[in-house]
Design a protein around this nucleic acid. Structure first.
Lengths: 221, 221
DNA sequence: GCAAAAGTGTTCAATGTACACCCATGC
DNA sequence: GCATGGGTGTACATTGAACACTTTTGC
């Protein structure tokens, strides 16, 4: 492969979700290049006529079953040695999706190797500088969780306050007082109560949805 | 000029400072390209073997007298239409420097047209999407001022608490209570008192310096 | 009736905000 | 002695943290 006279541009996406009480990231298996066979973040080269975010969505669609998810730019990695063969500047994105539930494998079934959700606490060695990308993505999400309404991207359907709190706890890595959490969250006016309830082997819980599904900055915690 | 098959990579730097109680940004006059004659942020193409930050420093050195300043990555702008001729993805950086005082013009005197400090409240039309870059830079600095010790980049020499407060007020665009500001700032332990004082037509003021000149996150305000 | 999670209130500590007076200097 | 900014302390409001008991359901 020839070395271009100027850096090439790529995008990489760290798609995060909370599943079974743990933060997970979506990994794909690299099929070619210097890291063939390694686990990596989905991503690829940016084309001539598309925006960076469009490139991220296109690569996600090609390598996974994810469509229309929440994306935000994270950081641009441009160390000359980050790709041992080419000079590639990579614009990293964070993706956030609701709990995939039992669909733990996102797979397009053909051209690309299967994508897999992996808990961030036990990641395999990653290609390129993708370990650093994941670390930065986690710390960014942790921070933004506290001063924005970002969680809404992880909870599309009606949810109980306990479920909401559990997402905060999984990402922040610490437990929160249930009573204080409920009071604080409700006082922000971000939630709207739905008249249905969720039943279990115990008292039914009230369900809520987010009033607005647009990014907004609010002091949540 | 031929359109390359893939996006090119550039860096642009919004260098900010506080001068005479107002936030200023450093502009240069574009000499060629689609925006010849327009005011723009200093910047240029990234070369094969340099990191993004190195490219930013190299371009700053070529177009201004600034060396060794505080730089941090802001955002990467990659809309296909942001440059009407080429497809250029631009990694924008924020630069922060102390008050240049009477040296209101940074000039290398040769290859490039003079660089000038302009108050951000009265900017001329800017080339490319540089107006958006400046807006984003300002809002980022405003935010980071409140939860980091970022100000130290604007005050290299001993300063009075009033000078420090005035910088906060200029950037935040609101006035702060002098007594509360002093108490809060001193309680953080970021400052070290120097035994000298600054004299004027009034009571001499104690001088301080920052204990550490490394980025750190602290709730300042 | 018992287990399990839902729901609710109060107390205390810490932090932020508003505000008024004396001090040291130059002229 | 007066104008100018420097320096300090106190009262009140707001916010966050800790904490215990009652309620509703399934089994």
């Amino acid at each position: 492969m020839s070395v271009p006279a100027a850096p090439a541009v790529a995008v990489d996406v760290a798609v995060l979700t909370v599943h079974a009480g743990a933060l997970h990231v979506l990994l794909v298996q690299a099929r070619g290049g210097p890291f063939a066979g390694w686990w990596a973040l989905p991503g690829g080269r940016v084309r001539e006529a598309e925006s960076l975010e469009d490139a991220a969505r296109r690569e996600l669609a090609a390598q996974t079953t994810l469509r229309g998810i929440h994306l935000e730019q994270l950081f641009t990695f441009g160390q000359p040695e980050r790709d041992p063969h080419d000079r590639v500047v990579s614009v990293a994105y964070i993706g956030l999706v609701p709990d995939p539930g039992s669909e733990l494998i996102a797979d397009t079934g053909g051209k690309y190797a299967a994508a897999r959700w992996r808990p961030v606490s036990r990641l395999p060695a990653l290609a390129y500088d993708h370990a650093a990308v994941v670390r930065l993505a986690i710390s960014r999400v942790r921070a933004k969780l506290q001063y924005t309404n970002l969680v809404y991207t992880l909870l599309p359907r009606p949810f109980t306050l306990t479920e909401l709190q559990s997402i905060y706890e999984s990402i922040l890595g610490r437990s929160l007082d249930r009573r204080n959490f409920r009071r604080k969250i409700l006082s922000l006016g971000l939630l709207r109560s739905v008249d249905r309830t969720r039943r279990g082997s115990h008292r039914p819980a009230a369900l809520y949805v987010f009033r607005s599904r647009r990014p907004r900055t609010v002091a949540v915690l």
